[in-house]
Design a protein around this nucleic acid. Sequence first.
DNA 1: TTGAAAGCGATACCAG
DNA 2: CTGGTATCGCTTTCAA
Lengths: 343, 343
Amino acid sequence: MNRRAKLKDIAEALNVSITTVSRALNNKTDINPTTKQSILAMAKELNYKPNNLALSLRKSSTLNVVGVIVPHVKHYFFSTLLEGIMNSAHEMNYFVLLGESLHSTDREKKVLDDFSEHGVSGVLIAPCKHSDFNKNVLPIIHRRTPVVVMDRMYDNYNGNFVNTNDFKGAFEAVSHLVQSGYKRIAHIASSDSWSIGHERIKGYKEGLRQHGMPIDENYLSICNFNNKEEGAEEGYRACHKLFSLKEPPDAIFSVTDDIAIGVYQYAQENNISIPNDLGVVGFSNSEISKYLNPPLSTLEQNGKKMGEMAFDFFFRALNANGQIFQKSFKPELIIRGSSVLPK
Amino acid sequence: MNRRAKLKDIAEALNVSITTVSRALNNKTDINPTTKQSILAMAKELNYKPNNLALSLRKSSTLNVVGVIVPHVKHYFFSTLLEGIMNSAHEMNYFVLLGESLHSTDREKKVLDDFSEHGVSGVLIAPCKHSDFNKNVLPIIHRRTPVVVMDRMYDNYNGNFVNTNDFKGAFEAVSHLVQSGYKRIAHIASSDSWSIGHERIKGYKEGLRQHGMPIDENYLSICNFNNKEEGAEEGYRACHKLFSLKEPPDAIFSVTDDIAIGVYQYAQENNISIPNDLGVVGFSNSEISKYLNPPLSTLEQNGKKMGEMAFDFFFRALNANGQIFQKSFKPELIIRGSSVLPK
DNA sequence: TTGAAAGCGATACCAG
DNA sequence: CTGGTATCGCTTTCAA
């Protein structure tokens, strides 16, 4: 097999200069249509394809590559996010360079630096839990590389982002539980110190408030977990604690579906019937939720759509100098058997 | 902010030639130790980092990038595979370029061609269902780019691979069901026309044979599905068919956990008790399996380990001219509540 | 032990 | 309209 054709080959075959060939191939003006035609024909014949590596060097930025970093690929939500990104990227002929932070801000920084070094044309980041914006993300922005933040927010961040309206989601979950007739609604929460945990707690409280229900801090149980297993365990523990109260809750809004799994386990072991004794609403509409028994009511975050939009934002940001793209998706409440009392 | 230091900067600062700097930085011989020291020092001071783009162009192959393609990232097994790959890649300072085939052989080809064009230093592929080896993979091998096939096999393929010993897994599943006391074991299978389906069917039959049980083709129900949803639906349908037989099975070895979910749904709707009336064993140890009710017995494939090894194989293949690396992982039977009759 | 110059493949400026 | 030349950052002969 002979090597790939390059500009020089075409030029020599046609007895023109490399410059002319380049011009013809790049649809420049200032070129004789006839010359252009013959060059195009020859390019086709030799099956010419531009060499990305050379182009990249020239532009000192990799061509058509976005760096994507998420905490964990195997977390269902992120994998759907990724699916959306890859869909759009593929469509626009972009490559996806993938990294995981594993919820370590140091590793996140390393990956992002590597991305920079590789010369990616953009970065899509679903930040890890205690991600350091100034240290990790700012340097990329300073390089004038478009960045789109996904899933969660940084404090005071006002660049491109695509995320979930966690506040509204939590608010809806609580409202739904109230409407279902539950009276003592607890929230097994994630840390208040990052946007997702914070917003959902806020939405939970606002939900109670607007329905004239008291806010009992005993009903707010804060958990810390980084994956499904830990989530389930924490959910179990939190549930145990809640049911040790003098007056246990009769419903739980769980900050994630993973936590809800722990709740289900606790309920099953202690003969607490869902939804009769305990209403449960999760968050994420993870794959598992609909197969739980009873199926778990939850909030769909539509990761795929978010991913597609994130890529789209990046793409538009590339050519829109300075314009900023932002979108908050309102999660969609999916009511299943875990939160509706039989008549 | 000033731009990145390059060789020239170091050279000028020290009044030596670019060549010398390059030599010093690349640990070449033929260089005065003193010169070398000062160059190294200056490089550090200027925070010099080699420009990958330039290096790549020079070597006409991207530096430190592997292309990874899987059918679906959001499929749990593939996401764990990916996790393993990324772990190892990160450790060895490699980038991961990711693509999805979505079980379309055309898309797979497109992605692989793109990888080639990008000049990846290697390709790790979990082939899609009807992947065309000659068309999709062979061209890459011809370019002398190391390829590692993951998860499943191509017919007569004898290059690098890492996969699951599907035959043994199926065999163990059936043996376990026999030992649990089930008498009429059915297999809801995947198409015989690709390695995974084929091997599991073979293992199923061999399991029956070795335990002196008859092979009833009515008990072999073949499904076609590309994702979890379809899997569950197909499982449901297949189950329905099996239970329409004059003598329905009392156990099902399901080719994937997804299929088993459909079986669970059918069982629940028809008051068939698992494991009392029906033993079930799945395949994959997907996240869901342990949270089903009862928890599903299944086979753990250890995607993470496979991924790590796949990368390792690629890495070794890079420098081992012609040597071939192969490994079949024996899946590990995980016995849970779905396949053990109470005493 | 060091340096000048060619070249990887492509683009852009400037002359003609 | 066309072509020569410099350049992107680095490695690698070849000479000195």
